[in-house]
Design a protein around this nucleic acid. Structure first.
Length: 645
DNA sequence: TTCCAGACGTTTTTT
DNA sequence: ACGTCTGGAA
């Protein structure tokens, strides 16, 4: 099997066919052949998947494979750039912009550019999408707008200018966004022969999971990395390609044998996960896609029960029904960790969350807000960021906007003076820099200066935990309490953050691992990981990729929500939505519940808000076409359920 | 310039 | 029900 040979290897595999196991065995096999763990590169889609894989390798080998490198492409890009950033004109202390930061940065570039005041010029959000898509697909802005955003063609030259400006600003601030972690990583290979040779020599074996979701940049990177040894194994399933919005290209699968002549192709069509009834439904569904390599999964499991279609009156009924069914399972001693509720879009979880909270069912939401994306976490991290990289304009901005009386205008003036200096941090410590700023801001700004001169002292160097405590104890605690209604909880979270930081002996590594981490708000991160309490999982389907549960609920199976109305403007979009449905249903091992709320509340008429009879319009929703198109004998129908408790 | 209140339009998916 | 925009007051 794929564990034996050398050379390029493409594994086309269905869901539940042991893709991960294949990779785990291959790693274990290599290690048993005296390959050093440091010569193996494991690229997976999420950090979690990497950790899981390493855990299983450890289990198989009986020891932890020290030196084995594994993680996401972005993670590897980050590590490589920390080493070679100078080769592309960056400093290795660069900081990483999350989605919100890059949006802010683009907005600033927009203001600086002062365009013709034409109405409906796209907002920073959309600009970030366009620029990011162009980067990830390795294409120019122009063609991307033409094909994906035809209605914005008239703004093309201005958008191109914004993109250039954004690029310049990032460079000046020594910051990279997520896409830069990929594109700059590739850049160092093109610009630095020594970097290229180093990595080409180092990684004798490369293994890639979820290959169907790689984009052009990642494909090019793999080509470079594997050029010397050509021992590259990629594993993927075209039917599970669900990241086209991030420029994932199925073409990478088709082109793999061309890029790596001599590729051996394997197919894994046995499904070890689900009962035949669930598999039948998934097979019947995916058949409706034109663009695919047809394959039919065979189950090795014994016959179980058919998926159950449950129609409920509305969203509340849906939530109530799911919660009640889960409580039944709990009373039958089913562990909560065996159950997941999946949905298309994150907002669909809110009604269910209320219901679960009310009934005391513990849950985590994957696909909600990230831990580090919360305002208070970003506030605190900004201080650490400028200590590591004081050219980071966007972090400075965040810090100064906390000061009363300082808004974007005053910050810009400040930055015009300090940002030009060789060491902006020292420039900010000069008393004279405060001249011309509002009187009421003077004292808080002086406090800030004192704080920073203290943080610069030797005893804080590379002690992120002490830094966080000190920052919190300055004015931030009061700021937090005054700004957020849930201030006390936020402060608790910051204290937790500082506890976690104690294990880091490098502020820089603490920062990048926190920002690149994928912990969600409320996820085990805050429980220190030791608390083995049982949780129900709520997850977007995208986040559920690669995971499995005994029981899975798919909620919101309504036309317009799933498939999402915005995603089906063309046939390709509809097919990707169907693949999403395929991914969702194949997460289930034994029980699959399809849940449909029949009536959805409209938002009501805003003008009549507060009036007794303005409850919004009730709209009767059609069942999702993905269920309608299935042969009726694929699933069972539950009796119609009302909302009475 | 900042800050606040009210209006408006918006809600796909992620490293 | 939430962030973003707008206009007017401080």
């Amino acid at each position: 099997m794929a564990t034996e040979g050398e050379g390029p290897c493409l594994v086309l595999a269905g869901p539940g066919s042991g893709k991960t196991r294949t990779l785990v065995y291959r790693v274990a096999y290599l290690l048993s052949q005296k390959v050093s763990p440091s010569e193996v590169l494991l690229l997976t889609f999420t950090n979690k998947a990497a950790r899981e894989m390493l855990r299983r390798v450890e289990l198989l080998c009986g020891r932890y494979p020290a030196g084995l490198v594994g993680g996401t492409f972005h993670h590897m890009g980050n590590i490589s750039l920390r080493r070679y950033a100078e080769e592309i004109g960056y400093n290795r202390t660069f900081s990483i912009l999350d989605r919100g930061d890059s949006k802010d940065f683009i907005s600033e570039a927009l203001e600086g550019a002062r365009f013709s005041k034409e109405r409906y010029f796209p907002k920073a959000d959309i600009l970030a999408d366009i620029i990011g898509f162009a980067t990830n697909s390795g294409r120019q802005i122009g063609p991307v707008i033409e094909s994906q955003y035809p209605y914005l063609v008239k703004f093309t030259s201005e958008i191109e200018r914004i993109a250039v400006l954004y690029q310049q600003k990032k460079r000046a601030a020594n910051v990279m966004d997520y896409d830069d972690l990929l594109s700059n990583w590739l850049q160092i290979f093109y610009l630095s022969p020594s970097a290229r040779e180093f990595y080409q020599a180092k990684f004798r074996y490369i293994l890639v999971d979820e290959y169907q979701d790689t984009n052009r940049l990642q494909f090019e990177t793999l080509k470079v990395l594997a050029e010397k040894h050509r021992n590259i194994t990629v594993v993927g399933d075209d039917a599970q390609s669900i990241y086209s919005f991030r420029a994932a290209e199925l073409k990478n699968v088709l082109d793999f044998p061309k890029a790596f002549p001599g590729t051996k192709i394997f197919r894994l069509e046995t499904n070890y996960r689900s009962v035949p009834e669930i598999l039948r439904l998934a097979n019947e569904s995916i058949k409706n896609n034109q663009n695919q390599f047809p394959k039919t999964l065979r189950s090795i499991k014994e016959s179980g029960s058919k998926p159950l279609l449950i129609s409920t009156e509305n969203g509340f009924g849906e939530a109530r029904h799911v919660a009640r069914r889960i409580l039944e399972m709990v009373s039958e001693n089913e562990p909560l960790s065996d159950v997941a509720v999946l949905f298309r879009a994150r907002y669909q979880a809110t009604e269910l969350e209320m219901e679960l909270t009310g009934r005391g069912i513990p849950y985590i939401v994957r696909g909600g807000m990230r831990f580090y994306e919360q305002a208070h976490v970003k506030d605190i991290l900004s201080y650490l960021k400028v200590l590591v990289n004081d050219r980071d304009e966007i972090a400075w901005r965040r810090i100064f906007l906390q000061v009363e009386g300082i808004g974007p205008g005053y910050f810009r003036r400040l930055w015009e003076k300090a940002g030009k200096s060789e060491r902006p941090l020292h420039a900010f410590l000069e008393p004279k820099i405060l001249a011309g700023l509002p009187a009421r801001s003077q004292q808080p700004l002086k406090n800030l200066q004192t704080l920073f001169s203290e943080l610069l002292r030797e005893d804080f160097a590379n002690k992120p935990a002490s830094l966080i405590k000190r920052i919190l104890d300055s004015d931030y605690r009061s700021y937090c309490l005054a700004t957020y209604p849930d201030g006390p909880e936020r402060i608790l979270e910051i204290e937790e953050l500082s506890k976690i930081a104690t294990v880091f002996d490098s502020t820089e590594r603490f920062l990048s691992e926190t920002i690149m981490g994928e912990e969600y708000k409320g996820e085990s991160f805050l429980f220190g990981g030791s608390d083995e309490k049982e949780y129900l999982t709520l997850s977007t389907i995208h986040q559920a990729k690669g995971l499995e549960w005994k029981t899975v609920f798919i909620i919101g199976l309504v036309d317009g929500r799933f498939p999402h109305a915005k995603a089906i403007q063309n046939e390709e979009g509809l097919e990707e939505e169907r693949r999403l449905f395929y991914v969702a249903s194949t997460r289930a091992k034994t029980n699959l519940y399809l849940v449909q709320p029949i009536i959805e509340y409209g938002w009501g008429c805003p003008k009549l808000q507060g009036l007794p009879n303005n409850r919004g319009s009730n709209i009767i929703q059609r069942l999702s076409p993905f269920v309608q198109e299935l042969p009726e004998d694929c699933y069972q129908k539950a009796e119609k359920l009302g909302t009475t408790p």
